[in-house]
Design a protein around this nucleic acid. Structure first.
Lengths: 341, 341
DNA sequence: GTGAAAGCGCTAACAC
DNA sequence: GTGTTAGCGCTTTCAC
């Protein structure tokens, strides 16, 4: 194990001072060409790399972004992450990642662990548990310490910071309108994320779309749960007892279950029942029939969040005006919904 | 923006020396109880957190693992990542993540960017481009600098380091045997990852299984490509011209295409054609019919890799004996294959 | 043009 | 028991 070359070492071996070496390697005009060349070549030979930790200490900045994601196995978050990483990489930032696993405790721990000089700022989406309990004081603490936070997707109005969200309410309205326009009149709501901010917004879109179109609400065909197990029970029961001609699903599990259960119940999709859901695009296309989805542009969300954070980190003047950026969704019509002529 | 509390500051405000504060906060027995308490309470009040960057500089270690992943949108890597993160978190390590996006250049860049004191060691899976070109010198460089690397899944025999792999060859043999035992005699090979080390191993398993069972090789029903586009062309052609009663697919795209195209071609699965593939378990279950897969235990791979790396980092004595750990796969029989009585 | 010295925040050996 | 000092690796004034 070769030990890493340092300025001091090079200086000694070349019989010059540390500061000369430093300046030479930074191509300072103070240093004469000959010495500069000599030092630079020697450094290359020795494979010298400046120690970033030391630089960070000096600069009081680490060029590192902390990302806290509730669940990396959820492809939406993986996509957002890829967007963050892309922008970060382009701007010379590192990304340090923690997974809260939807747990408040792990979220707090991650925040603690990184808020000690390791990172310059956070990008995060709130853990389910925190959102369910309405517990956001750990974020406020961090912000009070002067570390900027950008929240995406699952946000909290109580926390003042930059945010990137999807127009969940609008996109629900929109998706519902599409179902209604294609002659669905008895549209079920499928949600296994009723505890999340985004779930609530989408649900509101469902109700408002019905109201706007003078369709009465049928509580029998509405499933609002906060976990997959309970969802499965209720959905199975629903298929046994109710008839629907449309399903609006608020999350991936609900979307796919809607498809699978409809097929099993003998429905023809989309002739007898249309399905629209929030789900991963690649996999939705792979289903037979393919699933129409509300596409959330995950990478763009990540990119926007990273832009926002880096902009704030690099703006000298403190700008107390927090921005909330809204990324538009898109309705992807595939085979699970009827074409509207 | 409140400025972060430092030892120096606290020392001044309390009228003691920096080292007293440091010792008090580290609960050193050298310090008397009263002062200790006084200092500790004041520190808590000021919300003091030791600056990790400074500590890292002092300790010449960062308790941070660099992870380089070819593509986070591939759920296999996301799973491995979650395993890495879990172990790292448990052992008090941070995880810093880069995505090579299958590009050699980005892989080199990530390696460079982090090998300057930012991280203590790497966990990575080789980018497709690097593997295709057989270009591994950048890894050797890093190892020569004394930074340990653990490779997983896509590895290179040329690089001596700790490794974690799946028994790709064995699991291919195994999956093939299952198809053969369930009376498939004309089994297609579907691969869109023929350039990867894992793809080659699985392919070898395919051939050897055929040979062992005295089934002749039919080149007409073998698709070996290194990209999805070319794969789609060849697969479409195959379904137009050939008849098969079994498909062994080496990657997710090939697996799902096999299902979708079979259904479209009017095959009954599994009665007329059986399909086994390497693919994500959750989504395979969601397909109709559900897909039988070779399950790779992604999280376990990540956990093993992290264990291996941390063990090496924390072992004082240099142990030149590199380990290769093999994580067993499991054949998950679902609806796309016939039950064997 | 080159070097000495201070300092980023922290710890630890060594005085007192 | 408490303080002084040196040093981790680097940059940057300020002398020379």
């Amino acid at each position: 194990m070769k030990i890493r070359a340092t300025l001091k070492q090079i200086a000694k071996e070349l019989g010059v001072s540390v500061s000369t070496v430093s300046k030479a390697l930074n191509d300072s005009p103070e240093i004469s060409e000959p010495t500069k060349i000599k030092i630079q070549e020697y450094a290359k030979l020795k494979n010298y790399k400046p120690n970033l930790t030391a630089l960070n200490l000096k600069n009081r900045s680490t060029k590192t972004i902390g990302v806290i994601i509730p669940n990396i196995l959820n492809s939406f978050f993986a996509k957002v992450f890829s967007g963050i990483e892309k922008v970060a990489e382009a701007k010379g930032y590192n990304v340090i990642t923690c997974i809260s696993n939807e747990s408040l405790e792990k979220e707090i721990h991650a925040l603690e662990m990184l808020s000690n000089g390791t990172i310059d700022g956070f990008i995060l989406s709130i853990a389910e548990e925190a959102q369910k309990l309405g517990e956001f004081s750990h974020f406020l603490e961090i912000i009070k310490e002067g570390i900027p936070i950008v929240m995406f997707d699952r946000i909290a109005d109580e926390v003042h910071c930059d945010k990137v969200v999807v127009d969940d309410y609008e996109s629900a309205l929109n998706a519902m309108q599409h179902l209604i326009d294609s002659q669905c009149s008895s549209i079920a709501l499928f949600s296994s994320i009723d505890n999340l901010s985004v779930g609530k917004l989408r649900t509101k879109g469902y109700f408002d779309a019905l109201e706007k179109n003078n369709i009465s609400i049928d509580p029998q065909i509405i499933i609002r749960t906060d976990n997959e197990h309970e969802f499965n029970i209720q959905a199975t029961a629903l298929f046994d007892t109710q008839k629907v001609d449309g399903i609006f699903a608020l999350d991936e599990h609900a979307s796919v279950s809607a498809m699978k259960m409809s097929l099993k119940a003998g429905y023809k999709i989309p002739d007898e029942v249309s399905v629209i859901g929030f789900a991963d695009g690649v996999w939705s296309r792979r289903l037979t029939p393919s699933l129409s989805t509300v596409s959330q542009h995950g990478p763009e969300i990540g990119e926007a969040a990273a832009q926002l954070l880096i902009a704030r980190l690099e703006s000298k003047l403190e700008n107390y005006h927090y921005k909330t950026e809204i990324i538009k969704t898109e309705l992807r019509q595939r085979e699970s919904t009827k074409k509207i002529g």
